[in-house]
Design a protein around this nucleic acid. Sequence first.
DNA 1: TAGAGCCTGGACAACGTTGTCAGATGCGGG
DNA 2: CCCGCATCTGACAACGTTGTCCAGGCTCTA
Lengths: 328, 328
Amino acid sequence: MKDVAARAGVGLKTVSRVVNEEPGVTPETERRVQEAIEALGFRRNDSARVLRKGRTASIGLVLEDLADPFYGPLSRAVEEVARAHGALLINGSSAEDPEREQELVLALCARRVDGLVVIPAGDDHRYLEPEVKAGVATVFVDRPAGHIDADVVVSDNFGGARDGVAHLIAHGHRRIGFIGDMPRIHTAAERLRGYRAAMEDAEITVEDSWMSLGVTDPERVRRAAEEMLTGPEPVTAVFAGNNRVTVTVIRVLAGHTRPVALVGFDDIELADLLQPGVTVVAQDAAALGRTAAERLFRQLDGTLLTPERIVLPTRLITRGSGELPPAG
Amino acid sequence: MKDVAARAGVGLKTVSRVVNEEPGVTPETERRVQEAIEALGFRRNDSARVLRKGRTASIGLVLEDLADPFYGPLSRAVEEVARAHGALLINGSSAEDPEREQELVLALCARRVDGLVVIPAGDDHRYLEPEVKAGVATVFVDRPAGHIDADVVVSDNFGGARDGVAHLIAHGHRRIGFIGDMPRIHTAAERLRGYRAAMEDAEITVEDSWMSLGVTDPERVRRAAEEMLTGPEPVTAVFAGNNRVTVTVIRVLAGHTRPVALVGFDDIELADLLQPGVTVVAQDAAALGRTAAERLFRQLDGTLLTPERIVLPTRLITRGSGELPPAG
DNA sequence: TAGAGCCTGGACAACGTTGTCAGATGCGGG
DNA sequence: CCCGCATCTGACAACGTTGTCCAGGCTCTA
């Protein structure tokens, strides 16, 4: 900038004025400055700008895994909102590791992001308190925050799972299996609660052998599903706790002749083209991201004061697999 | 930091030393400083640090659409490499709009990212020249850069498409349709070239009505596919130019009784569970991202000097749909 | 005990920008 | 001809950190 000023034969501040389109610069002067900028290939250094202004026009997004198809649309939605507010998006994957989540969040805070959208891996976010106090807007998505008062945007995991399981019950099933993630993950716990609630509503006593909790890698999901299907009390239907489980269960069922009903949490691509089509409880990932980001920017505007918990509805999409009658 | 120094009763620089774990501080002094840091909830301001040091420890990733399942793993791979080098990832979607790409890239440069991984939307990157000269490491992925000498990491789009089409020819097809994206997109053009090459190798004259270029939204792909399948010279096989086209074509074929062979570019989830399984030419998105990011950091190390063009192989995965014999 | 050498700690400038404020310039009116 | 006013311009400090350099106190040796 100094160089530009020297070349244009003007003061530093005048260049700054031109760059920021502030009023009070003669067209002639502006032309000279623009010329110098062009000639020198000058680009404003935002780091210095940030240092002076205090705002970075960037927000951080911490999620579990960018490669998971569920987070792609969510991430994209957050980005769109950020873009509409002239902000850039910095993101990182926590890989479901609380320590890594904290490390990422603090790194983002050191960058002085204006706000954070966090899909928590851990369940204790007291480490964020000083940051929040220092003015970093924060919204938690998909799962609630732990030990901290903050905005939360989640899907109705409990209700969705309950409806999905009730749907199976309505089609005559009583022995219904549940395969889900570790209950320490809030969404997994809620979905399990939904499963239990639906079963209880129908006065069905759940056998331990019908449930598999905390399995997550395909191989173990596969084994868990096989056990449920072939045990002494084989299930006639399975409720899959998330998209990855659903996919694996579909593969397992494809290897069996006895038709087994299936409802999965989260929609999956091509679900309609399989035989039978896969019935799912779909959540709107994009809406989660959009809602969270919009709240974030309202916090930054100062329009928003009290933290709130927003629950978005899920939607049961029937495609065939969930409507199969009990067999075996 | 000033406050910390005051509270600990030491000089500014001493605090800096503690924060950066520089040697030359008595344990006792360090303890006092740590205490003050803790008490005040101090966090180093990276903006100021960047301003002073010149390096931001962050890299930018510009891609087409974060929500596209092809870019998730790519993005994740870049992030992993960045993380290994202690850098954060800032990313943005260009939405296939050259102007938006440029806007994003320049915004990232203003942030003084150390390097850029770009999946180009446009075909002229001369606007990047001053930045590259100024030391911003740059790698283009998935598609080559235009009018600029830079590292490029791409899949073998030409070879992959040629092999895929040759595979169909080997199974007896001669009337083979091609549905792809706009030829101004390099990958689309290369795949088209591969299609033509395979056809030429087999001495088949391609009819214009077999090709549909530049369609991208599902509705138009659907119409294009229908026309090919029902025209006067109906095709007996289709080569789909990317994952989104493949999915739509699968839907169209599901509505027809005559079996039509299909090979798609890019792998898709659950492709093995459909009836028939979908034969694809798969590219390794994660490898693309990893390779690009690694080259980027080697540029930053100074280990790498001359720009290179790296071509990663594709892999034909046969699952049934590509091995159907001609019918009709 | 004096001088050399080492270790710790602090003062100060610099990074590139923007906000504040005051100076310069030009114009019109008294 | 001079004054007041409006408009444009530039000098300077400040943002929070780090690199440089020097001071002061210590230990060790002659």
